[in-house]
Design a protein around this nucleic acid. Structure first.
Lengths: 198, 198
DNA sequence: GCACATGACTTATGAGCGTTAGCTAGTCCC
DNA sequence: GGGACTAGCTAACGCTCATAAGTCATGTGC
């Protein structure tokens, strides 16, 4: 008879990873703990050896991702002063992340509304920070005469969301690398804000 | 005593509309029929006088929306031959639709995965049609030397998804009209495909 | 003024959900 | 070699869900 300790024990990391995959495919409410358990070849209650609740899984996923985005942003832009450079690097890391962390992006963008308060509000505040940071770059570029765009706010939305949606169509097994996608998208972003036009 | 016939009878249109609102706010799996019933001030089982199942509500919403997108596209582009004109009008109606039909767009883009087969596959096929139609415009424009873009496929994704996401941030009570948003986004789209560059 | 169709209602069913409790069997350390 | 810890298991809970069935009041058309 197979014993608990003989077979590979399920780790909390594995539970989180499986939850991430299933949440991204079927959504938070569309995923049952029994499905996570089944994927790990374990009975449902055994999951509770590695987590506190289903909600906690979602919170962990969202929090890690949102903080990762902010860290990426600061690391990429802190060394640059020119709006063009700042926008370029901000979009480069943001686009790349959505190709390399597809599941996280999908869950955050679809299931944030399933987070319980007050956690949900906290995460939304964090996301707003990134939103404002990107918009500020564009506004600064317009003020400095580097960018030509009717509405910085709309441009900021368009750039952000076109990057976010990379997660929805990108596939690792395709011919194109995350780096290539990211570079092409920086091009799109600079075009949107009208870099290099009179 | 209020009677069934005295008070305003719930119509199947009202059920669909309420479902649309709630699905867009909480997702398909996150919405219970009891919540739809409560919003209509009716007991849950009474809903079955106006629909066949919860799944049918979702299917109706998705099908109408997807067909509407295709109708819009053909009506807008059929009269034009030039890639620039075709892209302009395709993006104009697509962007505008996502400002005027926010709830539908959100549900279709989030909850298509909750559709039962084979309906889900049928709808995905329909959506692919629009995807390919838009990509063809861009490819044609590149072939004709009108557009300058590294990857038509990526450009097509970026344009589509930035339009789709209008539904996620637009608010009717704001200062900007759907028409203004749509026009600004056509500008973005034409910039992305590099119209008017050497 | 009566029959019928309509659309509410109440009540009930069975399935599935997340979660808890309590038990058991291996593994590691002394 | 024995106790603590780990990580499975089964069983059961309370709840909510979608859905079914049958009842009853109403307004419309004959």
């Amino acid at each position: 008879m197979t014993s608990a300790a003989t077979r590979d024990a399920v780790t909390s990391g594995a539970v989180l990873d499986t939850a991430l995959t299933l949440f991204s495919e079927r959504g938070y409410h569309g995923t049952a703990l029994s499905q996570i358990a089944e994927a790990l070849e374990v009975r449902t209650p055994s999951l509770y050896n590695h987590m506190r609740s289903k909600q906690e899984l979602l919170q962990t996923i969202v929090e890690r991702t949102v903080r990762g985005v902010m860290d990426d942003f600061h690391e990429a832009t802190d060394g640059h002063a020119e709006p063009v450079d700042r926008l370029y690097h901000a979009v480069l890391v943001y686009a790349r992340r959505h190709a390399t962390h597809r599941r996280e992006a999908i869950v955050v963008n679809r299931d944030t509304s399933s987070l319980e308060e007050p956690f949900r509000s906290q995460m939304q505040t964090l996301r707003r920070e990134h939103e404002h940071a990107l918009r500020s770059i564009i506004s600064d570029g317009v003020d400095a005469g580097r960018f030509v765009i009717g509405s910085p706010a709309l441009g900021s939305f368009a750039i952000r969301e076109m990057c976010v949606s990379i997660a929805r169509w990108y596939h690792d097994d395709g011919p194109i690398t995350p780096e290539q996608v990211a570079r092409e998208y920086t091009e799109f972003a600079l075009n949107i804000v009208g870099v290099g036009r009179s």
